[in-house]
Design a protein around this nucleic acid. Structure first.
Lengths: 190, 190, 190, 190
DNA sequence: AATGAATGAGCTTTCATTCAT
DNA sequence: GATGAATGAAAGCTCATTCAT
């Protein structure tokens, strides 16, 4: 098992356990056991539990951007690109409920708040979505609202819908997914 | 200090600490200290920590419904009632950031999931919002989507906006609040 | 409710609870509740929990001696008196399983050890049984063994049998009871 | 200090403390301190306090059976074997007062009751003593009484005598020990 | 590099006892 | 006398992290 392998084993074991049990019911010892390494080994690859958690999120964020960028209709109308992003996001979450549950927990925790703060106050590169919104604002296609609000209108309901699906409160299908994304578009378009 | 006072001291101390630090970083000992009572006293009023947490939520839920019902424009058009609900909710959250953060944590936790399950699977009475949606569906004023989706489209962005305001990522004012609620209306109306 | 009544209510409540749950699972608060008095009231009648426990034992000891003395065949042969004592004891225990369980717990605890120490080192009056043994020794009817040993040979198996009956490991009837007592007599007689 | 050493340190520390103070006055913290390990370490070797207690008993039971089996006069008359068992038991207890007091407490507790229930209702293998009694019953050498009664007649007084010796109420010597065991034999033989 | 036993501070909860009313 | 709310010291147990091997 190579160095990278071990790191990944730990990362996935932690992702799985935390998704299922929550941050506080996923002891490092259990993560180690699930990953097939010793408890001490985790600390070779991650500074501490917080660091491990943030690294998992970072990894998942990468996956999500990759999912969005796949077949991204660059150059096509804003609405079309918006729908693509929504579909990619929901598609990703619905086939990866474990990842979704991790992300949900992360967002809703001190980690997530820090992360969001970094995002809004520019410690991160401007992303695809921000660019899309800014373009839409410039072209007066979408409502003149602050970016965080546009983001909330676009993705908040989408995430809630995924959660309700994963918790089996509702049953999402392609039609419904598209209706939701269209509704989000209705919320932000002029 | 009367009997009721102590219960309330504990309830508010717990609300405050949990809002600020999270469930797992608000030890009973600290709650007791903040409330100005001994650790054992908490257990005279609440069965255990879980019970305390659920009681706080229950109390806050009462506040929220009271806020919504205040000046509720009964008999007025659906859109008007919808806007009232949105305004009441955001109004309540923005003057009670602590309560907001508690509720957010609660919703996003096993407690909240249980609570939501009860709501959707009928262990709770039909509420004002459900009635409003059903009326709107009947009159073909709002989109034909499942209730949880309508709920997500209506309140998801609203909550996200409150959070961003409370975390000082954005600055909400009355104009912006109304724009958000109108956008939510655009999302659900036909 | 008179003063004496309250004391007795507490005493019986404690007896019942301790018999069923054990010393450490019979909180003073529960005893008070069962007795229909307040927690503080217990401390008017008993110095503390230890004192309460010792008083219960003392009370039960009185009952037992009374049971033994009832129809005691004073003046009859030693063997007859021995059999009477055994029958009285077992009879008492079998109709009072709660009392039995309390006594068993008491005997087998620091309380019981202290109590036994007092008995052997003469802080208590010489009792009926001791007198019987001494008479038997003098008359060379029973084996020349120390009193505690004679006591053990006579009553140990009897208590064990009661316990096994109460725990439903065996089913005692009059025949069996008499066989046991006779066997005990065989153990101590010359 | 090897792995096994630590487990044994804990086991012996717990045995000692519980023997002296009782289950409820032997906190895990004190056991750890006595054993020279940290509180958490105990839980590496024992699931919880109950488990620790049961493991100690199991260990002592092993010792006792070993003591009985040592020089066991297999094939010799029942009476001789009976005397051997009695002598072995008392011998073991008298040189191991701590073990004795632990066992006494264990027997007289929910643990012991469960253990006894298992024994009588067949969850354990038939043991040497049961075999001896059954043989004696078949050969009509010992009284026709249920096994638990024979057991009580044989070992009850023996245990009581050991307790009185350990508590220094009496002073056992070889002569007296043999007299007691002979008396027990008198109790069960026809 | 990897191990995993050991640590010990920290958690939630209980309960004998007190004392203001 | 009686109350019962309040106390606070302990209890059993967990787990992130370290470090000798």
């Amino acid at each position: 098992m190579s160095k990278t392998d071990k790191r990944e084993m730990v990362l996935h074991a932690a992702l799985e356990l935390i998704a299922e049990k929550g941050f506080h019911d996923a002891p490092m010892a259990t993560i180690a056991e699930t990953a097939g390494v010793s408890a001490g080994t985790i600390y070779r690859y991650f500074e501490n539990k917080d660091d491990l958690i943030r690294e998992i999120y970072s990894y998942l964020e990468g996956n999500i951007w990759a999912a969005i960028k796949k077949n991204y209709p660059e150059g096509r109308p804003i609405r079309e690109r918006f729908l693509h992003i929504g579909q990619s996001l929901m598609g990703y979450f619905l086939v990866s409920p474990m990842e979704f549950r991790f992300i949900e927990q992360f967002q809703n925790s001190p980690y997530g708040v820090d992360c969001r703060r970094d995002k809004f106050f520019g410690k991160k590169d401007k992303d695809l979505v921000t660019e899309l919104f800014e373009e839409g604002l410039n072209q007066q296609i979408i409502k003149d609202l602050p970016l965080p609000i546009l983001s909330a209108l676009s993705f908040g309901p989408l995430i809630d819908a995924c959660r309700d699906h994963i918790l089996q409160f509702i049953e999402l299908d392609d039609t419904l997914i598209n209706q939701i994304i269209e509704a989000n578009w209705d919320a932000i378009r002029r």
